[in-house]
Nucleic acid binder design. Structure first.
Lengths: 191, 191
DNA sequence: ACCTGAACACCGTTCAAGT
DNA sequence: ACCTGAACACCGTTCAAGT
């Protein structure tokens, strides 16, 4: 008699850290961070939850670290920038877009978790500033000021898009971000 | 025979929302957000966990909303400010101090949760700007730019204070914050 | 090497009951 | 009115076992 392997086991791509992170991000984007559980993640991957531990020995902590790395550390897009000032602008715009696209992981970003991921982000900003000839001390301040603004303003947007911004009417958040970005870019690089 | 009420029930201050929030904040500050559970909170209040629901019918959601309100919405200290520009500075410094003192609730701040709390915060900033004679449109941008910077930079600090900021040596975060704040304040109010 | 199944110690929350 | 105790449906994780 020919062996008949179990239906689910055949021709399935093997589990990998990449596929796990991808599936987790999909759950967070679609249902929120609170609904990301190991069991649900296992379901999404058509696997028992416990199989995940074989690839992420540190369990859920490692999973969340991976989400932070995936969202925060990937290089922001600055293609086609006209000079380094424009590169700063494009970098900020595309970094904000990614944060908004994965707003569910924002709470993980403001934790001590995975500090290396954000170090990589600031490093890429400092590289742009270095190209502009900004001295090292000023570049360190400029990078944190700009990144701080982008992250903080995005956080305000996430809260502001929720109902009941009593103080003012509905806000055009894209325009608001751009206006603030202009102020910060001018401050970081006057003249 | 004289009635003997149970030992625990006598002369205990009755549970109140204020005492509950206070105890919850104490747990978060001391042990982190992840260790704030209804059962542990009950222990801290010398009460069964289920008693808390009598005061917070919406349960843990309402508890977290209360933490956000307590940390984010309280007015920042600007006493003794020499003019409104100095008031903006003092406001920012004291708001950052409070965020750092309760860094464990930062993740709750970057959620859609309790948007009214942050609306109150921006309103207090706009009041200072109004006193400075800044026109309404500019004040709206300035308030979000400044608050965005303060929140975002504080988030960077929380991550940066964790080990392994590979790119640069140990950072003087107080000085870094002040330097960036100077840039932003200048941008928000040139001249 | 990779995955499963049962088990353990926890969660948040409901609900009937006590005082 | 305020709190308790038992119960329910879930968690993350360990560990022995399967293939």
């Amino acid at each position: 008699m020919v062996r008949q392997p179990s239906i689910n086991a055949q021709n399935r791509p093997p589990l990998s850290i990449e596929r796990i992170i991808e599936a987790a991000l999909h759950i967070v984007d679609g249902q929120g961070l609170g609904r990301l559980t190991m069991r649900r993640l296992g379901d999404a991957l058509e696997v028992e939850a416990m199989a995940i531990y074989h690839h992420l020995p540190r369990g859920k902590e490692q999973l969340l670290d991976g989400l932070v790395a995936h969202v925060a550390a990937a290089p922001a897009d600055e293609r086609g920038a006209a000079g380094w000032r424009d590169a700063l602008r494009r970098w900020s715009v595309s970094y904000r877009e990614r944060l908004l696209a994965h707003a569910g992981v924002l709470p993980l970003l403001v934790t001590g978790r995975n500090p290396a991921a954000l170090a990589a982000t600031t490093a890429s900003l400092r590289e742009i500033l270095r190209r502009g000839g900004i001295p090292e001390a000023g570049a360190a301040v400029a990078a944190h000021t700009l990144l701080g603004y982008v992250i903080g303003h995005t956080a305000l947007e996430v809260r502001g898009r929720a109902p009941a911004e009593a103080a003012e009417g509905p806000v055009d958040w894209d325009a608001r971000f751009t206006a603030g970005l202009n102020l910060v870019l001018n401050a970081v690089n006057p003249g």
